[in-house]
Simulated assay, not measured.
Amino acid sequence: MAGGGHGAHNITHGGLSLHATKGWHSRVGQGMCAVMWFWVLYRAKQDGAVLMGWRHPWEGHGHGGHDGHEEAKHH
Rank of each mutant, 00 (worst) to 15 (best):
G31A: 09
M32Q: 13
A34E: 03
A34I: 10
A34Q: 03
V35R: 08
V35Q: 10
M36E: 08
M36V: 05
W39V: 07
W39E: 06
W39A: 08
W39Q: 03
V40H: 06
V40S: 02
L41Q: 01
L41G: 07
Y42C: 01
R43T: 09
R43Q: 06
A44D: 03
K45R: 13
K45C: 07
Q46Y: 04
G48S: 07
A49M: 10
A49G: 03
V50F: 01
L51E: 01
L51W: 14
G53C: 02
W54E: 14
W54H: 12
W54I: 08
R55D: 06
R55T: 12
R55H: 00
H56A: 14
H56K: 12
H56T: 00
P57H: 05
P57L: 00
W58T: 14
E59W: 12
G60Y: 10
G60M: 03
G60F: 05
H61W: 09
G62F: 10
G62H: 08
G62I: 03
H63V: 13
H63D: 15
H66L: 10
H66R: 14
D67Q: 12
G68K: 09
H69A: 15
H69D: 15
E70Q: 04
A72W: 12
K73W: 04
K73F: 06
K73Q: 15
